[in-house]
C-alpha cells in the first residue's frame, strides 16, 4: 500500500472538493437562476440562489409564441429517439457483420469505414447534401437531417459493438446454423439479445450526442424555425438580438435541455464512462 498520511488526505480533499465546486457551479447556477425573474438576474448578479423562486419563466416559455418550447421539446424528442434507434441498429449490425460475416471485400470496407474517422471536409459538405435532398424532393429540414443520419456511419460505435461481439462464443451460432437459421436471423435471435450491455452504452452515448447536437440541426432548420430542436432554439434566442432581455427564458430553456441528459447520466453513469474508455482503447 502507498503511504497515505492524514495531512495528505486533507490536502487531497481540499483540492478535489474545490474542483468539484467549480465543476458543479455553472450547472447549479443555471438551474437556480432559471427560477429568478429577469430583474433579479440583472440587478443582483452576485446572488446565486433566487430570493423568491418562481416558475414564471417556465410558464412564460410554455405560453410563448416565438419561443415555442413545447414544439422544440417534441422536435428534440423524436429526433433523438430516431437517431438512437438508427445508430443502435446500424452499428450493432455492422459490428456483427465485421466479426462473424465472411464475404469478399470485408477488409476493404472495414478499412474504408474506419477512414471516415479521419476524412472530413467539415461543414462545407452540407451544400452537396442539400443538393441530394432537393434531388429526392426533400427539403432542408429536420427530416432531411434524419435521412442523412439513417445513412451515416458511426464508426466508434461499430468498433464498440465489434469488440463486444468478438467475446461471444461462436458455439451458439453454429448450433443455430445447423437448425437452419440464416445469417441475418442469427443476429436478431441470438446475438442481439446477448449484447445488451454494449447496446446500453451505445444507446446512451447516441442519446446524449443527438440530444445535445447543435450545428447540424441548426443548419438544417434555418429556413424552417418550427422544426428547431431545443438546443437550436435556445441558442437562437441568444442570437436574436434581445440580449439581456431574454436571459430568463434562455436559462429556463437551458435547464429544460439539461434535465434529460442529467437524468440519463444519473441512471446510466457507468455506461457513459465505459463507452468512453472502450472507445478510446479500441478506436
Amino acid at each position: 500500500m502507498k503511504k497515505q498520511t492524514l495531512v495528505g488526505n486533507i490536502i487531497t480533499y481540499i483540492i478535489v472538493g474545490f474542483v468539484a465546486v467549480i465543476a458543479l457551479f455553472p450547472i447549479i447556477y443555471t438551474v437556480a437562476s432559471s427560477f429568478k425573474t429577469n430583474a433579479e438576474i440583472l440587478a443582483f448578479p452576485e446572488r446565486i440562489f433566487p430570493r423568491n423562486p418562481s416558475f414564471e419563466n417556465y410558464i412564460t416559455a410554455w405560453n410563448s409564441e416565438d419561443f415555442n418550447i413545447k414544439q422544440m421539446f417534441w422536435n428534440s424528442t423524436y429526433y433523438t429517439v430516431i437517431c438512437v434507434f438508427v445508430t443502435l441498429l446500424s452499428s450493432t449490425m455492422a459490428g456483427y457483420v465485421f466479426t462473424r460475416g465472411e464475404f469478399p471485400g470485408k477488409k476493404l470496407i472495414f478499412a474504408v469505414f474506419s477512414a471516415t474517422m479521419f476524412i472530413s471536409l467539415g461543414t462545407i459538405t452540407v451544400y452537396p447534401l442539400f443538393d441530394i435532398l432537393t434531388a429526392i424532393n426533400l427539403n432542408r429540414s429536420l427530416w432531411g437531417l434524419i435521412l442523412v443520419k439513417i445513412f451515416s456511419i458511426s464508426i466508434v460505435n461499430i468498433y464498440l459493438s465489434r469488440s463486444f461481439i468478438k467475446t461471444i462464443p461462436t458455439a451458439l451460432d453454429e448450433a443455430a446454423i445447423i437448425d437452419g437459421c440464416s445469417f441475418i436471423s442469427i443476429f436478431f435471435r441470438i446475438i442481439l439479445p446477448m449484447i445488451k450491455p454494449i447496446t446500453a452504452t451505445i444507446g446512451i452515448l447516441a442519446f446524449q450526442s443527438s440530444w445535445n447536437e447543435y450545428l447540424m440541426p441548426s443548419i438544417f432548420t434555418t429556413s424552417v424555425p418550427s422544426q428547431r430542436t431545443l438546443i437550436v432554439g435556445v441558442v437562437a434566442l441568444k442570437n436574436s438580438g434581445d440580449g439581456a432581455a431574454s436571459w430568463n427564458l434562455m436559462l429556463a430553456g437551458s435547464t429544460v435541455a439539461l434535465i434529460p441528459v442529467l437524468i440519463a447520466y444519473a441512471i446510466g453513469n457507468k455506461y457513459f464512462v465505459s463507452g468512453m474508455t472502450a472507445g478510446a482503447v479500441k478506436g
Binding site: 455553472p26 445535445n212 438546443i231 435541455a257 439539461l258
Partner: peptide, 8 residues
C-alpha cells in the same frame, strides 16, 4: 460537465 451540450 462533459454531458452538457457544448452549445449550452
Amino acid at each position: 460537465p462533459h454531458i452538457v451540450s457544448v452549445a449550452i
